[in-house]
Computed example of a mutant assay.
Amino acid sequence: MQQKGTQSPWKRAGGENSQNRKVTDFYPVRRSSRKSKMELKCEEKKLIDDLITSGIEEGMEVQYIEGKGRAVFATRCFQKGDYVVEYHGDLLQITDAKKREAEYAQNPATGCYMYYFQYLCKTYCVDATKETGRMGRLINHSKNGNCQTKLHDINGVPHLILIASRNIDKGEELLYDYGDRSKASIAAHPWLKY
């Protein structure tokens, strides 16, 4: 509390006729090196674009599991929301995809690696049936998987990617829900129930 007849220290220090001082007269201007959310999102998108277009798949390895077949395991930790891998294959429109699926049905030895999805009001399919060195097509199904699919646009072309739906430890099998609950599919592939 200020006593009567005394001036506040602020008025005394500046005085009536003294120059107005600014904080920057005493302290240098500092610019923040933090990036905005938009800058961070753009950088993250560019990184994922580069990984997809270059075909780089890191942090995973394929192992064989008796009675199950090939499976993909994490060789490093993934944090929730991290890009894991692209579900890579031929991008087809629905009419071409249905024709190809009918061809595959002729040969029971051919597995089905076709993933249908909606993008900008059109139905597309990524056909990953052709055997390649890419690992996204080998990630197995689980209703409680640790990955989930997400659409990623590169110059107007949709790509299906898998991202970590929770933190994933090194050595864990990578799994996602295929989403197919039709009676015919479950009859042909009982493992879809789990």
Score class of each variant (00 low, 15 high):
Gln2Arg: 15
Gly5Thr: 10
Thr6Asn: 10
Gln7Glu: 14
Gln7Met: 15
Gln7Asp: 13
Ser8Glu: 05
Trp10Arg: 11
Arg12Leu: 11
Gly14Gln: 15
Gly14Phe: 12
Glu16Ser: 14
Glu16Gly: 12
Asn17Val: 13
Asn17Arg: 14
Gln19Tyr: 13
Asn20Met: 15
Tyr27Leu: 13
Tyr27Lys: 11
Arg30Asp: 03
Ser32Cys: 14
Arg34Ser: 13
Arg34Cys: 07
Lys35Leu: 13
Lys35Val: 04
Ser36His: 00
Leu40Glu: 10
Lys41Leu: 12
Lys41Asn: 10
Lys41Arg: 13
Lys41Trp: 07
Cys42Ile: 08
Cys42Ser: 10
Glu43Val: 03
Lys46Tyr: 09
Lys46Glu: 14
Leu47Lys: 15
Leu47Ala: 15
Ile48Asp: 02
Asp50Met: 10
Leu51Ile: 07
Ser54Tyr: 00
Gly55Asp: 05
Ile56His: 03
Gly59Tyr: 07
Gly59Gln: 07
Glu61Met: 14
Val62Cys: 06
Lys68Arg: 11
Lys68Ala: 06
Lys68Phe: 04
Gly69Val: 02
Arg70Gly: 06
Arg70Val: 02
Ala71Asn: 02
Ala74Gln: 01
Cys77His: 15
Phe78Glu: 03
Gly81Thr: 08
Asp82Asn: 15
Asp82Met: 10
Glu86Arg: 02
Glu86Ala: 01
Gly89Tyr: 00
Ala97Gln: 02
Lys99Tyr: 08
Arg100Phe: 02
Glu101Asp: 08
Ala102Thr: 04
Glu103Met: 11
Ala105Lys: 13
Ala105Gln: 13
Asn107Thr: 09
Ala109Glu: 12
Met114Ser: 00
Tyr116Lys: 11
Tyr116Ala: 10
Tyr116Phe: 15
Phe117Gly: 04
Gln118Gly: 07
Tyr119Ile: 03
Leu120Pro: 03
Tyr124Lys: 09
Asp127Ile: 00
Asp127Asn: 00
Thr129Leu: 07
Thr132Arg: 12
Arg134Lys: 14
Arg134Thr: 10
Met135Asn: 09
Arg137Lys: 14
Arg137Gly: 08
Arg137Ala: 08
Leu138Ile: 11
Leu138Glu: 06
Leu138Ala: 06
Ile139Gln: 03
His141Ile: 07
Lys143Asn: 12
Asn144Ile: 02
Gly145Met: 05
Asn146Glu: 09
Cys147Tyr: 06
Thr149Trp: 02
Leu151Met: 12
Ile154Tyr: 04
Pro158Ala: 06
His159Lys: 08
Leu160Phe: 01
Ile163Gly: 05
Ala164Asp: 07
Asn167Arg: 15
Asn167Gly: 06
Asn167Thr: 10
Ile168Thr: 06
Asp169Gly: 12
Leu175Cys: 05
Leu175Trp: 06
Ser182Tyr: 00
Lys183Val: 12
Ala184Leu: 12
Ser185Thr: 08
Ser185Ile: 05
His189Pro: 00
